[in-house]
């Protein structure tokens, strides 16, 4: 049978989701290149964490501003 492993507490879960939302804002809207790049790299990692916890699953990069693709 399956075994329980460590789980996120409700508080940790909320922090993680909030972190993801904040990073997403910075990843799309921040005009400072270094901060935006850091936010995008971190966003990808936090998304992987959320995916691993079954909490969020998004295919988000296609929605980024068109100027990023020039």
């Amino acid at each position: 049978m399956s075994e329980a492993g460590p789980r996120l507490t409700p508080d940790e879960e909320q922090r993680l989701l909030r972190c993801y939302a904040d990073l997403k804002q910075l990843a799309v809207h921040c005009q400072v290149p270094s901060v935006r790049a850091a936010a995008r790299a971190a966003l990808a990692q936090v998304h992987a964490a959320l995916n691993g916890q079954g909490l969020a699953y998004e295919l988000y990069s296609a929605d980024w501003p068109e100027e990023d693709k020039l």
Binding site: S2, E3, P6, L8, G52, Y57, E58
Partner: peptide, 24 residues
Amino acid sequence: YWNPVTETMPREELRGLQWHKLRT
């Protein structure tokens, strides 16, 4: 386990997760 929740998830829930991701 790297991700205890999804690695030990009951099979029915796992199928639900797969379907959610597949649909998206």
